[in-house]
Amino acid sequence: MAKDEKAKAKVEHAKGKVKETAGRAVGNEGMTAKGRADQAKGDVRQAKEKTKDAFKR
């Protein structure tokens, strides 16, 4: 289960990076902001998983 969550976090972060880059390329501030938000969600999910791993040990 944890590996699934870690993978989802990485995918979410990558999607956000792509959206942000595409938004900047076409000058779409909304897409850029959504990309940053997706990256932040991915970062939060990664932090949550790292915290869970730390308490397992």
Rank of each mutant, 00 (worst) to 15 (best):
M1T: 00
M1K: 00
M1E: 00
A2Q: 11
A2P: 04
K3F: 08
K3L: 07
K3R: 13
K3V: 03
K3T: 08
D4V: 03
D4F: 06
K6A: 03
K6V: 01
K6P: 00
A7Q: 13
A7E: 14
K8R: 14
K8E: 09
K8N: 10
K8M: 09
A9C: 03
K10W: 14
K10E: 15
K10H: 14
V11L: 14
V11K: 15
H13Q: 09
H13N: 08
H13F: 12
H13G: 02
A14D: 15
A14W: 13
A14F: 15
A14K: 15
K15L: 13
K15S: 06
K15F: 13
K15V: 12
G16V: 03
G16F: 03
K17M: 11
K17E: 15
K17P: 07
K17I: 09
K17L: 08
V18M: 05
V18N: 03
K19N: 14
K19P: 07
K19H: 15
K19Q: 15
E20F: 10
E20C: 05
E20S: 12
T21Q: 13
A22S: 08
A22Q: 11
G23Q: 06
G23K: 06
G23P: 04
G23I: 04
R24W: 06
A25F: 06
A25R: 10
A25N: 10
A25K: 13
V26F: 07
V26R: 09
V26A: 04
G27T: 03
G27N: 04
G27P: 04
N28G: 02
N28H: 11
E29Q: 09
E29P: 01
E29G: 01
G30T: 14
M31T: 10
M31K: 11
T32K: 15
T32N: 10
A33H: 14
A33L: 10
A33Y: 14
A33G: 06
A33N: 14
A33Q: 15
K34I: 09
K34F: 11
K34Y: 14
K34Q: 12
K34M: 09
G35S: 04
G35W: 05
G35V: 03
G35F: 04
R36I: 10
R36G: 09
R36F: 06
R36A: 12
R36Q: 13
A37E: 15
A37H: 14
A37K: 13
Q39C: 02
Q39K: 10
Q39Y: 01
A40W: 08
A40P: 04
G42F: 01
G42W: 00
G42R: 00
G42P: 02
G42Y: 00
D43F: 11
D43N: 13
D43E: 14
V44C: 02
V44W: 05
V44A: 13
V44S: 09
V44G: 02
R45A: 15
R45N: 13
R45F: 11
R45Y: 10
Q46T: 15
Q46R: 14
Q46I: 07
A47E: 05
A47T: 05
A47I: 01
A47L: 05
A47H: 05
E49A: 02
E49T: 00
E49N: 01
E49V: 01
E49Q: 03
K50V: 00
T51K: 10
T51L: 12
T51E: 11
K52P: 00
D53I: 00
A54I: 01
A54N: 01
F55L: 08
F55G: 02
K56Y: 02
R57H: 08
R57V: 05
R57A: 07
R57Y: 06
R57P: 02
